[in-house]
Design a protein around this nucleic acid. Structure first.
Length: 155
DNA sequence: GCCAACGTTGGC
DNA sequence: GCCAACGTTGGC
């Protein structure tokens, strides 16, 4: 099994929005970066994703989602009314993909970015690197476990 | 609101 | 293929 981190701006789609979704599942749409897309394509059912709130207050991991369905073409790329429309995408060559994720566990309280930054063992976590803005990124198992233990400590 | 870092576009 | 210009991301 692999571990990931997926970013979302809560003003666009928050952890609460995921909880409020039918069956607490959503299609992770709108990723328009090739590296992030390639990671989405390698996700397997059952993989766990840290759900991170970017451009938010507080910046934090709000919970864990689980991959419920592996990558399929992102329909918003073909929808001219969508903010995510891509004129270069076509049914024959979808270009962009998404997975379906389901709420797995809520971090309550959330694990703050500042706590991550204060944890020496996480210094090399991709999220914390300067200039890092990949919206779908792999997470090392060790890092995942450290983050879980941060949450266990404060719940 | 600022701005550094990054990815993409397009002229050459 | 190079690289300057531009638009976006996202922490602060």
């Amino acid at each position: 099994m692999n571990y990931w981190l997926i970013k979302s701006e809560p003003s666009v789609f928050s952890w609460k929005d995921l909880l409020a979704s039918p069956e607490q599942i959503t299609f992770w749409e709108g990723v328009r970066n090739y590296q992030a897309r390639n990671y989405l394509k390698t996700m397997k059912k059952g993989d766990l994703c840290l759900f991170y709130h970017s451009n938010a207050n507080p910046l934090a991991i709000a919970g864990i989602a689980i991959v419920a369905e592996e990558a399929t073409p992102d329909p918003t790329a073909l929808d001219s009314r969508s903010d995510y429309f891509d004129p270069k995408a076509s049914p024959e060559n979808p270009r962009w993909f998404g997975v379906r994720v389901k709420a797995h566990r809520e971090f309550s309280p959330p694990v703050l970015r500042s706590e991550l930054s204060d944890t020496p063992e996480l210094f090399d976590m991709l999220l914390l690197q300067k200039g890092s803005r990949l919206s779908v990124q792999p997470v090392k198992k060790e890092h995942y476990q450290i983050i879980l233990s941060l949450w266990e400590k404060e719940k």
